[in-house]
Design a protein around this nucleic acid. Structure first.
Lengths: 320, 320
DNA sequence: CTGTTAGCGCCTTCAG
DNA sequence: CTGAAGGCGCTAACAG
C-alpha cells in the first residue's frame, strides 16, 4: 500500500505538502502541486478512506436506506436501477455506497444508527416515504443530510421525484389522443402508495377535462384467491372499456392478458415502470418511462448541493 | 461521541484495558471486563469503525457485487431479498454492507478495486457468475475472500446455491404426479444463464425417466416484436401440452395467460422465484421457492467460515 | 492481569 | 508557499 508518506519522500517534500497538494489546497504552488499529483498517480496512490474519515470526522460514504420489508413494494426492479444511478454519481465523487436494509422498521433504525455513529456516515438517500417514520426522525435528530426518492411527506424535505400527477394526466391524454379511448379503466394496488395516488389524481383530472368516462379498480390483497377471475369478471361487466392505465408494469401484464381474453380484443394499455422482463409487446401497449437511473443520479446531486431543495425528473411515454 | 478513552477514565483503568475488555480479550479478569462493558453500554459507547479499520488494516465491511448492467437479469426482485438476508447476518456481526454496481464490467472492476484499496474491504459477495470475469480475477489477485451466489464456474470457488438441477427434476415430477402431466413444455430465456441450464437438465432427465414427452421453448430476445403472438402460435401447434415449466415467474405469468387463451384451458404451470407481484393465482399454479433471503444469509456464513466451502440450499414447491 | 508506548494514514493548526 | 508537530480512536507489542 502506497501512502502519502511514500509520495512525500519520492517528491522530496514534507508529508503535509503532499497532503495539501493532493487535496488541491490553493496554498501550494501550482507547479509542485502538479508534480506531486503526477507522482501520486504514477505510484498508484489510493488514499485510505478510513484514515481520512478518522481525521475529518466524516465518512466519504453515502447510506442508501431501503424500505423496511413489511412495506416492500412491487417496485422492486426499480431499486437496482436506482442503485446503479446513485453509484455512478458516487464513483465520480470518489464516494462509496453503503446500504441499510432490514425487515422491520425497528431493525432498520438500528442499522441506520450504526452507520451514523460507527461509520460516521453523514449522507443518506431514503428510498421510501411514509408518515411518522422513525428513521426520518433519527436522521433529523442526528443532524445528518438526507434526500428522499419519492413523494415528500414533510415540509422542507429534500427530495427527487417524478411528477406523478402530471404523468398520470399525460398518460390519459395519450390514450385519448392516440387510441381514441373514451372509457378508461385505472388499476392500482391496495397499498396506497403516494405515487399511485398522484397518478390517479392526474388521471382523474385529465379524464374530467377531456370528458373521458373513467373507472377505478383497486386490486385487492394478494391473499385473495382467484384474483384473476375477479378481475375478469369485473371486466366482463364493462365491455365498453377501451383503454387501461395501470400503476405498475407487472399489474399491467396481467390485466392486459385478461382483457384480451375477456373482452376478446386488444385494449390499449399504458403502464408505469417498465419492468425489465416485460414481455408485453404490441402496437397497443405503452408505458411511462421514469428513468430510475436518472433519479438515482439526481438524488446524489441534490444531496451534495448546498442549494438545491429538490429535483423533478422528466418522464416520457414509450412504446414497449 | 463517546470514545474508549472516556470509558477508561470513568472506569479508572487504562485505555488498553478498556479496549481489551470491550473486545473480550481473555487476558482481562472477568470481573473488570463485565464492569467495563456495562459502563460502555451505559454510556452508549459505539466503536468507531474507521479507527478500528485503520489499526487492523481490515474493514468490517462486506462488499456486495451486483452483475454489470449489460448482463442484468430478470431476476431483479431476487436481489433485494438477497440484500436483506445478507444484511441480517452482517448486522449480527456488527458488519456493514457496501455495494459495487456499475453498467460495464470495466467500471465495476474499478469500483471493486476502490473498495479494496481505499476502504480496505477484504470480504465480498458476488451476485453473478460468468466465465473469465475480470472482477473475479481481481478478487483473486488481490487475495481477498469472496463467496459467489450462483453456479460456480471455477474449481475451488466458494459459493452458495440452490440445487437447480434437482429442483428442475422435482418440479417435473410434481407436475407429473399431481397433475398427471404427460407432455410438458419447458420455457427458458435466451440468456443462457447457468441456473436455467441446470433446471433444464434436471427437467430433461426427469422427463426421460418418467417417460414424459418434453418440449423446449427458448424465448427469443425482447427486441423481437410480437413475442406473445409467436408464443401463442407455438402453443397452438401443440395442443396436447398438459404442463408447463418456466425458469422465471415473470415468464410464467405471460405463458400462463397465453396458454389459457390459446389452448382454451388452464394448463398446470410451475415456475421459479415467485416475484413479489405475482398475480397468478389458481389451483393449477405452483412455484419453486428458492428462499433468496436464506441464500443471502448463507453467503455470509460461508464467507466468514474458515472451513465451509459452499452451502446448498433447500427449495420447496408451493402453491401461490 | 494491567499500564505504557507507539503507530495505523491522514489532515490541520502553528510556525516559519 | 512549505515543514514540523500533534492528534483523530483504536489496537498491539512490550513491560511490568
Amino acid at each position: 500500500m502506497v501512502t502519502i508518506r511514500d509520495i512525500a519522500e519520492r517528491a522530496a517534500v514534507s508529508v503535509s505538502t503532499a497532503s495539501r497538494a493532493l487535496n488541491n489546497n490553493p496554498r501550494i504552488s501550482r507547479e509542485t502541486r502538479l508534480r506531486i499529483q503526477s507522482i501520486a498517480t504514477e505510484m498508484g496512490y489510493q488514499p485510505n478512506y478510513n484514515a481520512k474519515t478518522l481525521t475529518n470526522g466524516e465518512a466519504n460514504a453515502v447510506g442508501v436506506i431501503f424500505p423496511p420489508g413489511d412495506m416492500s413494494t412491487a417496485a422492486n426492479p426499480f431499486f437496482v436501477d436506482l442503485l446503479m444511478g446513485i453509484n455512478t454519481q458516487l464513483r465520480l465523487r470518489n464516494a462509496v455506497l453503503s446500504v441499510a436494509i432490514a425487515n422491520t422498521t425497528e431493525e432498520l433504525t438500528k442499522n441506520v444508527l450504526a452507520l451514523i455513529s460507527q461509520s460516521l456516515i453523514h449522507h443518506f438517500i431514503l428510498l421510501y416515504s411514509k408518515a411518522n417514520d422513525p428513521v426520518v426522525e433519527l436522521l433529523k435528530s442526528q443532524g445528518v443530510q438526507y434526500v428522499l426518492v419519492g413523494d415528500p411527506t414533510q415540509d422542507n424535505e429534500r427530495y427527487v421525484n417524478n411528477n406523478n400527477r402530471l404523468a398520470g394526466a399525460k398518460a390519459l391524454e395519450y390514450l385519448n389522443r392516440h387510441f381514441n379511448s373514451r372509457h378508461v379503466l385505472f388499476v392500482e394496488s391496495e397499498m396506497e402508495q403516494g405515487f399511485e395516488k398522484q397518478r390517479r389524481l392526474g388521471f382523474e383530472s385529465a379524464a374530467q377535462q377531456l370528458g373521458v368516462k373513467r373507472e377505478l379498480l383497486k386490486l385487492p390483497d394478494k391473499a385473495m384467491q382467484h384474483l384473476d377471475q375477479a378481475v375478469a369478471q369485473y371486466l366482463d361487466n364493462r365491455r365498453d372499456i377501451d383503454g387501461i392505465m395501470t400503476t405498475d408494469d407487472l399489474i399491467g401484464m396481467m390485466v392486459y392478458q385478461l382483457t384480451r381474453q375477456q373482452l376478446n380484443r386488444q385494449v390499449p394499455l399504458i403502464s408505469f415502470n417498465k419492468s425489465q422482463s416485460n414481455i408485453l409487446i404490441g402496437d397497443q401497449v405503452r408505458f411511462v418511462e421514469l428513468y430510475p437511473q436518472h433519479m438515482g443520479e439526481a438524488a446524489v446531486r441534490v444531496l451534495f448541493s448546498e442549494t438545491k431543495q429538490f429535483e423533478m425528473l422528466p418522464f416520457t411515454i414509450e412504446k414497449v
